[in-house]
Design a protein around this nucleic acid. Structure first.
Length: 508
RNA sequence: GGUCUGUUCAUCUAAGGGUUAGGAUUCAAGAUUUUCAUUCUUGCCAUAGGGGUUCGAAUCCCCUACAGACUACCA
């Protein structure tokens, strides 16, 4: 253990949009770094050219930006260990692969992918599993079995080859994972992993270890799916002679799908009607669009708050956390070990909590694009006022429209259920009288409408409930919305009267 | 199949040997809102099963079951 500055990295591969599991991994890395006054780096692991997806890298950065996760060093930000894109560090890795061959920790292998596939199929047909390891490597085409001169001439002639790690025999590799505690593996169960591919690129395992070392990463915080490769990574650090500065490992529990079995996947969102991505994503090949939390009207701080509580808890009963508070409270020892099922309902609840905490101005600003898309152009102060009136009844920014569209345009239809319930005999006549009454009012602000109106209704001996509900139907087209007199005030005297007359006319 | 990891209300989780097993979401009921939503109150609901260790186990150990991850020249 060194006493150097805490440094962590989020190292996604740009094979598509980040999903919420990835965002959570990034978040926990970020929170851990900031809690300890350390650095958070973004490193793009694009060593598999065949899986490269255009736009994915930009997506990842935009998603982190939206979430409020700030990158200290990365491809865009630069930094002392640039470049931060593994494809741009390509030359570096072959040197390290060579070091391992020279020290006897790795070897060249000339077996083709087809040959290995055939071996796997053969083993499978016999109910066995083929593994490239100490038991089989002596019977395969590699620098351990081939005569030195044959091997050299193969390399010289440019024969395709990979570099494999020579997994030691019967060695117990132990490690203390910050989240999981003591874990151990026997190397006899492991295979000779490819470190360097025939296309000249390193695999994840090599690149990851080399870069983490070079970038002075102190803690590796990643998903549980990486736990099985921990022994390989430890052995690599040892082989390089870097064990004394090896990062500490933490393996985060998985995020499971809301219903059914297994970890959350892209498909779940489409089927169950909630986003699995922070931002909407358009697949460049198929053109399919997947929805995103941002586009669905979620607020980033609520989204982050929800994610933070998936697998982590503060040990207190506090549930609402700003990013600053999260940084303050976050420690890895309060991260659980078991997988968390994702709950879209609670996500909605969080969003509502954040929605009502946001200022009317801020929310109105976020709502503006939705208004635009409806072709509505109104003064901003009006949008602010309406937002303030309806935000408590919304879970999402876009619901401000559903809850308040009638402030901006007259209802075009009337909810039939409400019509049959409220539009009884005599009601049209009462409404017509009310329109006349409104026309004679001189002051048009909510309390000054309510007061005389109540008097008027009382004098007439009408049923207040019937009147209010029917009036609401006239003004908004249904049985929803905030206080009626607020609505009257905002839409104005003339419009109020007009809507009543229109309803009387149309609902005859 | 093998290796590894996990298992507390429907869901997220608290309780690091001693509590009526706590909170939150969902759901249900009531109150408020002469609408709807919000809000408030109340309620329902859990230690996977079996063995140990212990005066005492959700907590420590073992077995079983179930679940998951990994098992590629992918990350």
């Amino acid at each position: 253990m060194t006493t150097s500055k805490i440094r962590v990295r989020f190292a996604p591969s740009p094979t598509g949009p980040l999903h919420i599991g990835g965002v959570r991994t990034a978040l926990f890395n970020y929170l851990f770094a900031k809690h300890n006054g350390g650095d958070f780096l973004l490193r793009i692991e694009d060593t598999d050219q065949s899986r490269y997806v255009p736009g994915a890298e930009a997506y990842i950065m935009e998603a982190l930006d939206w979430c409020g996760i700030k990158i200290d060093e990365g491809p865009r930000e630069g930094g002392p260990h640039a470049p931060y894109r593994q494809s741009e560090r390509k030359e570096l890795y072959s040197k390290y692969a060579q070091d391992l061959i020279d020290s006897g920790h790795a070897y060249y292998a000339f077996d083709t992918a087809e040959e290995l596939d055939a071996l796997r199929n053969l083993a499978e047909s016999k109910g066995e599993t083929f593994t490239y390891n100490n038991a089989t490597r002596t019977g395969l085409n590699n620098s351990l079995t081939l005569p030195g001169n044959v091997c050299e001439s193969l390399l010289y002639s440019g024969a395709p080859h990979v570099v494999r790690f020579k997994m030691p025999e019967n060695l117990v590799v132990e490690e203390t994972d910050i989240i999981r505690g003591h874990v151990q593996f026997n190397t006899d169960q492991l295979d000779d992993k490819v470190l360097f591919k025939s296309d000249g690129m390193p695999t994840y395992h090599l690149a990851n270890v080399v870069d983490d070392h070079l970038m002075e990463i102190t803690h590796v915080i990643r998903g549980e799916e990486w736990l099985p490769s921990v022994p390989l990574h430890i052995l690599l650090y040892r082989a390089f002679g870097w064990e004394s500065t090896m990062p500490q490992f933490s393996h985060l529990p998985l995020i499971l799908k809301p219903v059914g079995k297994g970890k959350l996947s892209k498909r779940d969102g489409d089927q169950l009607g909630f986003p699995v991505f922070p931002l909407a994503w358009k697949d460049p090949e198929t053109g399919d669009v997947s929805r995103g939390y941002r586009e669905d009207g979620y607020l980033p701080d609520g989204f982050i708050n929800m994610l933070s509580l998936l697998g982590w808890n503060p040990g207190t009963e506090q549930e609402i956390f700003s990013m600053e508070q999260l940084i303050d409270s976050f420690t890895l020892d309060r991260v659980g070990k078991s997988g968390s099922r994702f709950d879209p309902e609670k996500t909605k609840w969080f969003n509502h909590q954040y929605l009502i905490r946001h200022s009317d101005e801020e929310l109105a600003g976020l709502f503006l694009p939705y208004l635009d898309s409806k072709g509505v152009k109104v003064p901003f102060p009006l949008v602010v006022r309406v937002t303030g009136l309806v935000k408590e009844r919304c879970h999402f920014v876009n619901e401000i429209w559903d809850q308040g569209f009638f402030f901006f345009q007259a209802p075009e239809s009337y909810d039939e259920k409400i019509v049959s319930k409220r539009w009884k005999d005599g009601v049209p006549e009462m409404m017509a009288e009310i329109a006349g009454f409104f026309a004679n009012l001189h002051i048009w602000i909510a309390p000054e409408i309510k007061e005389p109106f109540s008097q008027f209704v009382t004098e007439k001996g009408w049923n207040f409930g019937t009147i209010m509900n029917s009036l609401r139907l006239c003004l908004v087209g249904g049985s929803y919305g905030p206080d009626i007199f607020d609505i009257c005030e905002i839409i104005g005297q003339a419009e109020t009267i007009e809507r009543i007359e229109k309803a009387v006319h149309k609902l005859r």
